[in-house]
């Protein structure tokens, strides 16, 4: 097996391959391509999963499952239907949410319910992440939302909550949460524009 130095994520490969190209090669069983893809996806996957699960050991476990699933199911990826980053991060969020809604995950979640406000969830995020343009842009765009839109989205996405739980936590009607999630995402989409 190829042995690539571990902290290579800032050094693009000589061919400067995009995650999309790499994932297409991974689908053909190319382990070297997976090793090149790893540093591009591992950080976002782990960061997201840890937002939802909190627990570091559980988050590493789920991150491992997601990355192995990425390897296993790479042939289902179609570059014309979206970017590799979107694909793997959608998978990662799904798996994190599955875990948090499992019986044990639910018990853990209940323990920390209530106390945590949506704004604090994002503030904690900003404390733990090195400043970067992506974070600044996301922060700016999130702050352009209404309070309810922003709180609904952060509770659902970073908190792994269902929209019914969001409605309970924010004490607003279900229908309002549905529309705020959608309208908030539309605003975010328009504000963020194309990825970097």
């Amino acid at each position: 097996m190829m042995n690539v130095a571990s902290d290579e994520h800032r050094t693009p490969d000589a061919g400067h391959r995009s995650p999309d190209d790499l994932l297409v090669r991974v689908a053909k069983g190319d382990e070297a391509a997976f090793e090149q893809l790893y540093p591009m996806v591992a950080g976002p996957v782990f960061g997201l999963v840890r937002r939802v699960l909190r627990n570091v050991a559980q988050s590493e476990e789920v991150t491992q499952e997601v990355l192995v699933e990425l390897w296993r199911t790479a042939s289902r990826y179609h570059p014309d239907r979206g970017s590799a980053m979107t694909w793997v991060l959608t998978l990662a969020h799904r798996r994190a949410v599955d875990r948090v809604r499992s019986v044990q995950g639910r018990a853990d979640l209940e323990q920390r319910a209530g106390a945590q406000s949506a704004d604090r969830a994002f503030d904690e995020v900003t404390e733990t992440v090195a400043a970067n343009l992506e974070r600044e842009q996301v922060r700016r765009c999130l702050s352009s939302l209404t309070d309810v839109q922003r709180e609904s989205i952060t509770l659902a996405y970073y908190g792994g909550r269902t929209y019914r739980e969001v409605a309970d936590l924010l004490r607003i009607p279900l229908g309002t949460v549905k529309t705020r999630l959608r309208d908030g995402l539309i605003r975010l989409r328009d504000c963020l524009g194309e990825p970097r």
Binding site: F46, V125, E134, Q137, V138
Partner: peptide, 8 residues
């Protein structure tokens, strides 16, 4: 996915 990349 952009929200995720912001918390890498």
């Amino acid at each position: 996915a952009r929200l995720a990349m912001a918390v890498a």
